[in-house]
């Protein structure tokens, strides 16, 4: 244990800074995101796009699956990392309309680590792998798009056809999907 200050020690107001250049410091979120982004280890099916290279907190992830139901498509996700990262997860939305049991028409994505199972030790990379996995193994157990989930459970061939129709652009179950072929 130490004595942190002697009783005589007076602190002074506005004494000159011993450090040159009194600039705003980087936030803990910025320190962490710099690390996360520099060490992004993307699967070969994924690329990122940073509209402003100075802003590492806002970017897009593009996934082009090379196997599974969705192998012919190209899907774009937007990432917004908040000032409380990594205490809070980034906000992720799917910008491509997709016929998928775990993604709804508004682009909400049901992935546990984006909400209830997020932990500060997880990284942007964990989310990328989680999203990629959603395209390989769509999960009809926890649906956001209930109709798609039912089709997947009851008729995999029809599900496959519906996915392809949606990717090429057109109506599936009365909903119009924009074309998103690779």
């Amino acid at each position: 244990m130490i004595k942190l200050f002697s009783l005589k020690q007076q602190k002074k107001d506005g004494e000159p800074s011993p450090r040159p250049g009194n600039q705003k410091k980087a936030s803990a979120a910025q320190l962490r995101i710099t690390k996360d982004i520099n060490e992004l280890n993307l699967p070969k099916t994924c690329t990122t796009e940073f509209p402003d290279p100075d802003d590492l907190l806002t970017f897009k992830l593009i996934i082009c699956p090379d196997e599974g139901f969705y192998r012919t498509g190209r899907f774009i996700f937007s990432f917004k990392v908040g000032p409380n990262y990594p205490h809070e997860p980034p906000k992720v939305k799917c910008e491509t309309q997709v016929y998928h049991p775990n993604i709804d028409q508004q682009g909400n994505v049901c992935l546990n680590i984006l909400r209830e199972d997020w932990k500060p030790v997880l990284t942007i990379n964990s989310i990328v792998y989680g999203l990629q996995y959603l395209f390989l193994e769509p999960n009809p157990e926890d649906p956001l798009n209930k109709e798609a989930a039912e089709v997947l459970t009851n008729n995999r061939r029809l599900f496959e056809q519906n996915v392809q129709k949606a990717i090429r652009g057109g109506y599936v179950g009365g909903i119009y999907f924009d074309r998103c072929l690779k």
Binding site: Q23, N38, T48, F50, P53, D55, L56
Partner: peptide, 24 residues
């Protein structure tokens, strides 16, 4: 190995160089 460099200038974040991300 492949350092990524950022800084803060006048309160704004600035990316100086990052080799690992193509678009950056």
């Amino acid at each position: 190995k492949t350092p990524g460099l950022t800084t803060v200038i006048d309160g704004r974040n600035k990316t100086l160089y990052m080799a690992t991300i193509k678009s950056i």
